[in-house]
Computed example of a mutant assay.
Amino acid sequence: MHILLVEDDHKAARLLARGLEEEGFVVTVAHSAQEAAPLPLAQFDMAILDWMMPGKDGVTLCAEWRQAGHNLPVLMLTARDAVTDRITGLNTGADDYLTKPFVFDELLARVRALLRRAERLQPAALQVADLVLDPASRAVNRGRVKLDLTPKEYAILELFMRHTGAVVSRQQLAEHVWHADLIAIDNLMDVHIKNLRRKVDEPGMPALIATVRGRGFRLALPEDGDA
């Protein structure tokens, strides 16, 4: 499952993203409403929005999403605990509301509850050729073979499959999977990509993961891929 986290506090965003990733989620972090606005919401399963941000706040961003017809589940985070504030947030379009400071386990429970509630709106599985990834069970199969992926390999593959046919840059991978600068994990990334390829593209099978020289990686049907 892919979560959009919009939080202007860099330290809080980093800690929250790390906790969610340890629970198996893919997390994309934006540090302002302006940074989040151009992101394609179709790639996310839900969003966690901080209410109080410089410039455009989380409530305004959520209202804009709803006015544009997006039904992405939204969990609002805020230090405001007045009943009128909670009503404002929910009336604006948020699906749930959590007051800071909070216990991570409660946030996790609310995230899972929102995802279960929205499950009927989600595709049953992601598929490219005979490669199938089920976000609900986190099962991955290539043909009749079940693939045993590590959490990082799963996160990389899910990101690739949610951007099927598009180039995913190394910087995107660094930010979305590791929440780190590319320089810090460049070599580590190569190790994970190599291991993922060995599992997904076994000898004799059409290769689905392609390297796009100077740009990054792309997952696509063999006839569409770059060597």
Score class of each variant (00 low, 15 high):
M52V: 10
Q67W: 12
L98N: 02
G19Y: 00
E23N: 00
E106N: 06
K56P: 12
V29I: 06
T28C: 03
L114D: 05
G55T: 01
D130V: 00
L121G: 12
G24Y: 05
L114P: 03
L39S: 09
L4C: 01
R110L: 07
A63D: 12
A47H: 05
A33L: 03
A37C: 06
M76Y: 04
D8C: 09
T28W: 02
R18P: 03
E35S: 08
T99R: 08
W65R: 07
D130E: 08
T60V: 14
E22F: 10
L133E: 08
C62W: 11
G24H: 03
A42Y: 12
A68S: 15
V26E: 03
T88M: 15
L5C: 08
M76W: 06
A94G: 05
L16M: 04
A79F: 06
R116F: 11
D105Y: 13
A125E: 14
I87P: 10
T88L: 15
F102T: 03
L114W: 07
L77T: 02
A129R: 06
F25E: 02
D85H: 14
L39A: 09
L90N: 10
F104I: 02
K100F: 11
G89E: 02
R120E: 14
Q43C: 11
D105S: 15
A125V: 08
F102V: 03
L98Q: 04
T78H: 06
R66E: 14
R117N: 13
D45Y: 11
G55A: 07
R120F: 12
N71H: 13
Q67M: 14
D8H: 00
P123S: 10
G58I: 11
T99C: 15
L108I: 08
E35H: 08
G69Y: 08
I87E: 12
F102G: 07
A12T: 10
Q34E: 15
H10N: 10
A113K: 00
G19E: 01
T28Y: 00
A125L: 09
L49V: 05
Y97P: 02
H70T: 13
E119N: 11
V74C: 10
L77K: 07
T99V: 15
R112Y: 00
A125R: 06
T84E: 15
V27Y: 08
R120L: 12
E64R: 04
A37D: 09
E23P: 01
M52G: 11
L16Q: 00
D50A: 05
A124N: 09
P123K: 10
L126H: 09
L4T: 04
F25T: 02
G89W: 00
A68C: 06
M46W: 06
L49F: 14
R120Y: 11
T84V: 13
D50G: 09
C62D: 06
E64C: 10
P101H: 10
D96A: 14
W51E: 07
Q34L: 15
G58L: 13
D95Q: 03
T99Q: 12
Q127M: 11
R120G: 09
V103F: 13
L75S: 07
W65E: 03
R80T: 13
V6Q: 02
W51Y: 14
